[in-house]
Every structure is written in C-alpha cells, then in structure tokens.
C-alpha cells in the first residue's frame, strides 16, 4: 500500500497522461491514436512548450515572470513589422531576440537590484510592453504586406514533420541539458532552493537572476515570432493567452519531479497533458465549457496527488 502511494507520487502525473491517452484512444480509435494525430499534437503544443520552458527557468529560481504573454505578443509584432518594412528576414527574427534579451535583463536587474517582488516587477513590465505594442500598431493586427517567406518557419514541414515540432524538440533537449548538466542550471536551482545559501556559497545571485529572466524573455519572444510566422499576421494580443496555460504546465511539470521543482521534461509532460486534452476533447466535439472544466479539474487533481504523496513521505 505504501509503495503504491509512493509510486503514485513519482509517476502519478505520467499515469494520468497515460490514462488520458487510453481513454481518448478507446473513444476515438480511428482519429485519436494515429501517428498523424500525434504529429498534429506535437505541433499544436510546440509554441506552448517553448514559452513554458521560459517560465520554467524563472520558476526554477523561485520567481515569477508575468510578462511572458505580452513579451510574446511584442515579439510577434516586432518581427512582423520589421518584415513589413523590408528588413532581411533573418534580421526580422534576430533583432527581436536581442531586444527581448534586454527587456528580460531589465526585469531581472530590477528584481535582483531593488529586491522588488518579481510578481510586481513583471506585472509592470507586462503593462509597459502592452503599451509599446499599442504604440507600434495602433492596436491593429499587423498583416498587410508581410512577405511570403515570413511564414516559412511556422509552416514548413520536413516530410510529414512540422518544423515547429522539431524546433520545440530542440529547445526541450537544449534546456533539459542546461538545467541538468551545466553549471548554469545547477546554480539556478540552488538559488531557487535557497537564495542566501547560494550567496554564501559564492554564487553571483543577481547575475543568474538576470540570466534567468533574460532567457525567459527570449523564449517568450521566440514563441511570439513563431505564432506570427505560423498565422501569417501578428495579433497584438497573440501571446497573452499563453501566460496562464504556461504556468499551469510548469506546475503540472513540478509534480513529475521527485523534488517537486520545475523541470524541463516535466513542463513538456504538462504541455502534453493540456494539449492532448484539448485535442481529444475537441475530437469528441465536447462543448468548450466542458473542456475548461475538465482541464481545470485535472490540473488541480495533479497538484493534489503530489501533495498527498509528499505528506506520506514525511
């Protein structure tokens, strides 16, 4: 009994994922459990995964970045506007990354230097960015005169596999590696575990906070640019919808880790759960409100399972 409880804690979330897949496979065998649909799902979650990796980094140092959504929107808008104004396409994707790096760095700098709650800092930054987007676009979707090549990243397929899925996988591998096997990752987790101890241990805490926020902003910006490239236009609020779901994914992801800390692979699982739910429930032609209720309930359930497991461990 005890062993069962323990494994429920460690693998409960993965088990939930398996059950979800099983249920949909039974209910919609022909449509759901197909290679084609899984390729489809991988593309659908790709954008959420990339932005959620950003949120994972910031949460690993025990901070929050509420500006991921508006950073993504801004990324898409900047890159689309640059494309419209005839900048060479590689620049249209590189310049916004540099700009987002600076914005993220500023977030981190304010949080580390002035010891302002990251919650408040990034909430402010989010509002500033929304203002900047408005200034740039007048609130209108950027669409006119976007060159055809702009959509390549978001729509290209390698055989059957969408480039977006490949990009997502590359980010998962890269940041999974960084968080597990590099000095950077280790120090981020140390800061998240105990900031003062990290300081005493000689870690330059402000520097690493800056890095975490900067990387988070860059990943948000990349997500925004990929959305714009995918749909062929830049909506001024395109990224905003990702804010809550990305944190939901990170929280579910924490439950995959034994230590209960944010981790890239867990975040991927979290996104997969949310993405597969949306996919399967839409296939069942479930009304949207039911989808919301079921998705929300599963998030809460996953977190409760983890807490229960932890209580047992003590």
């Amino acid at each position: 009994m005890k062993n069962m409880k323990k494994s429920l804690q460690a693998y409960g979330t993965l088990l939930a994922l398996a059950i979800i897949i099983l249920v949909f496979s039974i209910l919609r065998p022909a449509a759901f459990f197909t290679v084609r649909n899984f390729i489809n799902i991988s593309r659908q979650i790709s954008l959420m995964v990339i932005i959620s990796i950003g949120a994972t980094l910031v949460m690993s140092i025990n901070e929050f970045d509420l500006s991921v959504g508006s950073m993504a929107s801004l990324g898409g808008v900047m890159s689309a506007l640059m494309a419209v104004n005839g900048l060479p396409l590689p620049l249209c994707f590189l310049l916004p990354i540099l700009i987002s790096l600076v914005i993220g760095w500023i977030n981190g700098w304010i949080v580390a230097k002035f010891k302002v709650l990251s919650f408040i800092t990034t909430l402010g930054m989010s509002t500033v960015l929304s203002g900047v987007i408005y200034r740039l676009t007048g609130g209108a979707t950027v669409f006119q005169n976007i060159p055809k090549g702009f959509s390549w990243l978001g729509t290209f397929k390698i055989g059957e596999i969408p480039l977006l899925s490949v990009i997502m996988l590359a980010f998962v591998v890269l940041f999974g590696f960084i968080m597990r096997h590099t000095v950077l990752g280790r120090r981020l987790y140390a800061i998240g575990g105990n900031e003062e101890t990290s300081k005493v241990a000689g870690i330059n805490v402000p520097l690493y906070k800056n890095i975490a926020f900067a990387l988070c902003a860059v990943l948000s910006c990349i997500t925004g640019m990929l959305i714009a490239s995918r749909v062929g236009s830049a909506n001024t609020t395109a990224g905003d919808g990702y804010f809550l779901s990305s944190y939901a994914a990170v929280f579910i992801g924490c439950t995959v880790s034994k230590k209960g800390i944010p981790n890239v692979l867990g975040t991927l699982v979290g996104c997969a759960i949310l993405g597969i739910l949306t996919n399967g429930l839409t296939m069942l032609q479930m009304p949207t409100y039911m989808q919301d209720i079921i998705t929300g309930a599963i998030i809460i359930f996953a977190v409760i399972m983890q807490k229960l497991g932890k209580g047992n461990a003590n």
Partner: peptide, 28 residues
Amino acid sequence: GKALIGNLAIRENVALSCLGDFAAGGVI
C-alpha cells in the same frame, strides 16, 4: 537559512561551491 539547500540532494549541496572544478565549458 544560509548553509544548506534543504530541497536539493546531498550531492548537489556538497558540490555547490566548486562546480567549476568538475565542469568544462560550463558542462558538468
């Protein structure tokens, strides 16, 4: 408060201040 990171493994705690010794190019 200042000497341990309770949530991290013993290994990670012990290696905290000397990660550079085991790393090449930032990879541990």
